[in-house]
Simulated scan of single mutants.
Amino acid sequence: MMNPLASQSIDLLKALIAIPSFSKEESKTAAVIRDYLSENGIKAKRHLNNVWAKNKHFDATKPTILLNSHHDTVRPSTAYSRDPFNPDIANGKLYGLGSNDAGGALSSLIATFIHFYEQKKLNYNLLLAITAEEEISGNNGIGSLFKKLPPIKFGIVGEPTQMQMAIAEKGLMVLDCLAKGESGHTARNEGQNAICIASGDIEWLQFYNFKKESEFLGPIKMTPAIIKGGTKHNVVPDHCSFTVDVRTTDAYTNEETLAIIQHYLISEVTPRSTRLQPSFIAEDHPIVSAGKAIGLKTFGSPTLSDQALLPVPSIKIGPGKSARSHTADEFIYLDEIAKGIHTYITLLIQIL
Score class of each variant (00 low, 15 high):
Asn3Trp: 01
Pro4Met: 14
Ala6Asp: 12
Leu12Pro: 09
Ala18Asp: 06
Ser21Val: 11
Phe22Gln: 14
Lys24Leu: 09
Lys28Trp: 10
Ile33Cys: 09
Gly41Gln: 11
Val51Tyr: 10
Ala53Met: 12
Lys54Asp: 12
Asn55Arg: 13
Phe58Thr: 14
Asn68Thr: 13
Ser69Arg: 13
His70Arg: 15
Ser77Asp: 12
Arg82Val: 07
Pro87Asn: 11
Ala90Met: 14
Gly92Trp: 11
Lys93Thr: 13
Gly96Met: 07
Asp101Gly: 02
Ala102Phe: 00
Ala102Ser: 13
Gly104Lys: 00
Glu118Val: 00
Ile130Ser: 12
Ala132Lys: 07
Lys147Met: 05
Lys147Glu: 07
Lys148Ala: 03
Pro151Ala: 00
Phe154Gln: 04
Gly155Asn: 01
Gly155Ala: 13
Ile156Arg: 05
Pro160Leu: 02
Met165Arg: 07
Glu169Ile: 02
Val174Leu: 06
Val174His: 02
Leu175Gln: 02
Cys177His: 03
Lys180Asn: 04
Gly181Pro: 04
Glu182Thr: 12
Ser183Ile: 00
His185Ser: 02
Ala198Gln: 04
Ser199Gln: 08
Asp201Gly: 07
Trp204Thr: 09
Asn209Ile: 01
Glu213Leu: 07
Pro219Cys: 15
Ile220Ser: 12
Pro224Thr: 15
Lys232Gln: 15
His233Pro: 14
Val236Met: 14
His239Cys: 13
Phe242Pro: 14
Val246Arg: 08
Arg247Gly: 11
Ala251Lys: 03
Thr253Glu: 02
Glu256Ser: 08
Thr257Trp: 01
Leu258Gly: 06
Ala259Val: 02
Gln262Thr: 02
His263Trp: 05
His263Ile: 03
Tyr264Arg: 11
Leu265Ala: 08
Pro271Asn: 08
Ser273Trp: 02
Arg275Glu: 01
Ile287Ala: 01
Ser289Tyr: 01
Ala290Asp: 05
Ala290Tyr: 04
Gly291Met: 03
Lys292Ser: 05
Gly295Thr: 01
Phe299Pro: 06
Ala308Asp: 09
Val312Ala: 11
Val312Glu: 10
Ser314Leu: 07
Ser314Cys: 10
Lys316Leu: 10
Pro319Asp: 12
Ser322Asp: 13
Ala328Glu: 13
Phe331Gln: 09
Phe331Met: 13
Asp335Ala: 12
Glu336Leu: 04
Gly340Gln: 05
Thr343Gln: 14
Leu347Tyr: 03
Leu347Met: 09
